[in-house]
């Protein structure tokens, strides 16, 4: 049996409709804010992880380094070649500074834990950048990025345990695909209503 439809003049359903519309607008504005940082850049870094880590684990020198450098270049281009964002965030400059700090600190931290096998060093750096992403996600209340980056840190540790798997292949594909999917979702424009 059909339910009686509320009259358009019903103030309660009118108010409920307006609140639902405001929620949808809030989500679209939130997407507009997040897309420049976690849209195309995460697509680039997802490709970098998914291609670069398996290359480091399975190609011989110098090709492993060449492919790794190209994969990193894809991530950097996707991060810095985007169009001007439609939303400005007063904290963006400080966050960028924090990222540069993490990157600049990486060689020093590598020196602290050396000597390690190259594949362990690669996983160590991946986990370090995963922690940096997770901190960024907490600062910007980004739950999806927190789940992906936190998962990446855990995965970096887990792949070192079992015998008979390729740690860099599993870590690279696992983290890379997760970043790629999140980036594609964020980069996809949301249809505006009304």
């Amino acid at each position: 049996m059909d339910q009686p439809r509320p009259s358009p003049a019903d103030p309660r359903s009118d108010a409920a409709g307006t609140l639902a519309d405001l929620d949808a607008i809030g989500r679209r504005a939130d997407r507009a804010y997040r897309a420049p940082v976690t849209g195309a850049p995460l697509v680039g870094w997802g490709i970098a992880w998914a291609v670069g880590y398996p290359a480091l684990g399975h190609l011989d020198l110098p090709w492993a380094l060449v492919v790794g450098a190209l994969a990193t270049a894809v991530g950097l281009v996707a991060t810095f070649a985007g169009r001007e964002p439609g939303v400005s965030n007063p904290g963006a400059g400080r966050l960028r500074g924090a990222w540069f700090l993490v990157l600049a600190a990486s060689p020093f931290l590598v020196q602290v834990v050396s000597p390690l096998e190259p594949w362990r060093l690669a996983l160590f750096l991946g986990a370090l950048w995963g922690v940096a992403m997770a901190i960024y996600a907490i600062m910007t209340a980004d739950r999806a990025l927190l789940a992906v980056s936190g998962g990446s840190v855990v995965l970096a540790a887990v792949v070192t345990v079992p015998e008979g798997i390729s740690p860099l292949l599993v870590y690279g594909l696992g983290t890379g695909i997760a970043l790629l999917v999140l980036g594609i979702v964020r980069a996809t424009p949301v249809r505006s209503g009304r």
Partner: peptide, 12 residues
């Protein structure tokens, strides 16, 4: 609604 959804100090 769109402007309130941005982080504090954010502009569009």
């Amino acid at each position: 609604a769109a402007l309130v959804a941005l982080p504090a100090g954010g502009s569009m």
